[in-house]
Design a protein around this nucleic acid. Structure first.
Lengths: 346, 346
DNA sequence: CTGAAAGCGCTTACAG
DNA sequence: CTGAAAGCGCTTACAG
């Protein structure tokens, strides 16, 4: 290649990297030779020489959850737009697996890490943060609040949903929670409690059940909740997966939604939008979350010092999307200052 | 590191790669030094020296389609189990983007490629195959049949679904097709036609509409089909996304499914399983498809010659999953030799 | 069994 | 502006 263009490999390198200080005619000669030979620089050799790989690691909890599929897509697209590749890992929410994958990705010398499967106490992630390794969490964060993250305002989302139920006249509002060691789940529970407290409603611990964000377990939790004599008239589910399980439980008990039970989820995944389901839910801007996470991570990689001093804590606003399942569509809408959407083809 | 263990870097390399020909005591010394120093070999340097990166490229059409989310998860898991990383790319079915990404991934020196977004005529993929670059297609394949692939028996799947409709007494059976340049869509249409021909039913071209595997376009196609005076009494949809759009169109026209319209999809994605939807559909073994694709690709990488001589063509069997939407659950089941499943919590 | 040395294909001061 | 040379951190014949 260098021979073909009649220059040194150093000059070839400069031209192909658009480095300054090469005479225009040589620049042209190199470009032509490269074209004729179909020459493409060896990315691995370049990585070794530069000490950067142009690769990011992406760790998600569960790719088959539409929430992660959507954020992953946004992340991959954003990274490509900035010239970065992304290596994908799935943890199934197993801390052990996540720790292994973080280790693995660092061995692969990724330039930075996007973390979507963080636990509230998470030694592997805490170590990354303490070492100052470029990483940003999304969706979930550490209990300590350390590090960089972009998350939904889960507390507010749950407050709004709960207040919505209260405004509709519900007094016994149940909550099917997610794992206590996910910040999302913990914050949504917190928001639910705060809204009740603010309304002066007495909190009833029997109305809160653990569903682990899993269909099977959430289904059982919902059955328990709905079989009680003083069953709730409304349920806030920790996420949409949970809400669908509640829907199943209600159906199996012969309860109609929303007539016998009002229901609200979290995430606004594609399922919720179906007219047959029409789930009222707290929506997140998943594309935005993915894009932001990539943007911050790349800035971090460029200028690590700044981020170590001033971590980014980006909180995205929730949007309560009213559909059929909460029952509000049957009452005058004037009282609700929220966006109204109905399911349908999209 | 080498100094710490009192040996040469060559010996360190041998020990850490479990290469033979190192005295046991030295081996131990190296391992101990590695542990004490927390030494991890530099993967990039290793890749450069070995000429292999331990990385695979995965190209999918659309990660937000649950079909691809599920296969991607299976692929990532299988690759990890075999010690490989996977770089993820999304094409949105744009051939141009796919070509770029193939180029990009080869520059990144992936050891092989998993292709889930192939078109029937696909110069970029055909070039890969002709060059003998390690790659395996999944879900979709080339018109020429060249290269390695693992796909569903789409023809048979569509035949079975259509025959099922015929057995239920339907005579006017519509088809909402996918893009003509996807092997999946083409083969499913072919199966539909064959089943009709075998039954001696006269094919009516007006019963076949193009929905492009997109909700919006499939919805329009279904409206057209269902507004006709001699509308079909049953519709086979090219995939589940299409089937859901047909469901919407039917609902908007006041048609009940399955009473006024029998419906069947393809893929068995999570949505179809919901009891509110209960879509009869031709199921694929997505996990198996992903695992197989990875397995073959790694064999290819190990022994390229063999695969160039004897390409792998793996065809997976379809399973017709009967749910509510086809109407069969209202008639005696004895006549149908198919697996019966009902939607519900899972 | 072991080490010195060459080589993987780039980038980047350094000297001219 | 340009090239020779060192260096990135490994692996792997090769010689001993």
């Amino acid at each position: 290649m260098a021979r073909r263009a009649g220059v040194s490999v150093a000059t070839v390198s400069r031209v192909l990297n658009d480095a300054p200080g090469v005479r225009t005619d040589r620049r042209r000669a190199v470009r032509r030779a490269a074209r004729e030979l179909g020459f493409v620089p060896h990315a691995i050799a370049r990585s070794l020489a530069r000490g950067r790989t142009g690769t990011l690691g992406l760790i998600v909890a569960d790719l088959t959850n539409p929430f992660y599929a959507e954020t992953a897509k946004a992340i991959v697209d954003a990274a490509r737009g900035r010239g970065y590749s992304v290596i994908l890992c799935n943890t199934d929410n197993l801390p052990r697996l996540q720790a292994e994958q973080i280790e693995w990705l660092r061995r692969q010398r990724v330039d930075g890490l996007l973390l979507g499967s963080v636990h509230l106490r998470d030694p592997a992630v805490e170590r990354l943060v303490n070492e100052g390794f470029p990483c940003v969490m999304f969706n979930r964060r550490l209990a300590s609040g350390q590090g960089n993250w972009v998350v939904l305002d889960n507390v507010r989302g749950a407050e709004e949903a709960t207040s919505h139920f209260l405004a509709l006249g519900h007094r016994r509002i149940g909550f099917v929670a997610g794992p206590a060691d996910f910040s999302t789940a913990a914050e949504r529970l917190e928001g639910y409690r705060r809204a009740l407290a603010r309304a002066g409603a007495e909190p009833d611990p029997r109305l809160v059940r653990q569903g682990h964000f899993r269909s099977d377990l959430a289904y059982q939790a919902a059955l328990d909740l709905l079989r009680a004599d003083d069953r709730p008239t409304a349920i806030l589910a920790g996420n949409d997966v949970t809400a669908l399980a509640v829907l199943d439980a209600a159906a199996d008990l012969g309860l109609r939604v929303p007539e016998d039970l009002a229901l609200c989820g979290f995430d606004d995944t594609s399922l919720s939008r179906r007219r047959e389901i029409a789930l009222t839910t707290v929506a997140q801007q998943k594309d935005e979350m993915g894009r932001l996470a990539v943007g911050y991570l790349l800035e971090f990689i460029e200028d690590p010092e700044r981020f170590r001093r001033h971590p980014v804590h980006h909180v995205l606003p929730p949007t309560l999307v009213i559909r059929r399942s909460c029952g509000a569509l049957r009452v005058p809408m004037a009282e609700h200052s929220v966006r109204v959407l109905q399911g349908g083809a999209s």
